[in-house]
Amino acid sequence: MKYSALAFIVFVMIIPITSCNTKQSNSNLELYQCPMLCEGNKTYNDMGTCPVCKMDLQIPESTQLNSEGSNEISENSIFNLTSNWKTEENTSIQLKDLKGKTLVMVMIYTSCKAACPRLVADMRNIESQIPEKALKYLNFVLISIDPKIDTPERLKAFAIENYMDGEQWTFLQGTESGVREFANVLAVKYKQISPMDFSHSNIISVFNPSGELVHQQEGLGVDNKETIQAILNLIPI
């Protein structure tokens, strides 16, 4: 056990160096668990079946994702994106700097008069329904699709104007190419709606602290209940 912990640390330390071309081969540190938790949190080192219910053992989700302190980024994580962004405080960041908190993301632009104010209202509505003490686990991220106009100053002004200047709010200005790329990453889930439906941009996405998409809410002024539930599920309280 000690050995595998050591191996894990070494593995984690190697990842940032070779992140571009590491194949996900972490078999030496995977632990298997009965999906029904027949024996509580008991884990096994090998694949097999649960001695109680005979179900196939699985890798528990909590170690796959959401493992705080781990630098491992899964293949589906948005933290694989290497584009550079600026926050409303004019700090330069990459998306992986947002790691560790549950992310609620939406794409807007501040000069937008029709859909965006309602999207912003939806975001505030969601935020207001999260218990206060849970907010520190959350980051509400508003990404501008209009990086030419939406400078950090403008985003900051927008944040203040809309009472979204707290710790839990982040506004991002990207490069044109970075924004387009990120939009296309989100579009991954758009396939469920018909190709003629252009409400793509009216989407609120929830990512777990490892940057994996867990929920998307489509449309304007829709019921936020599911989104809020998805967020609460990711919060460790």
Partner: peptide, 11 residues
Amino acid sequence: FNSVLITGESR
């Protein structure tokens, strides 16, 4: 190719 989102002028 997904320009409708990019222009943001979906409405």
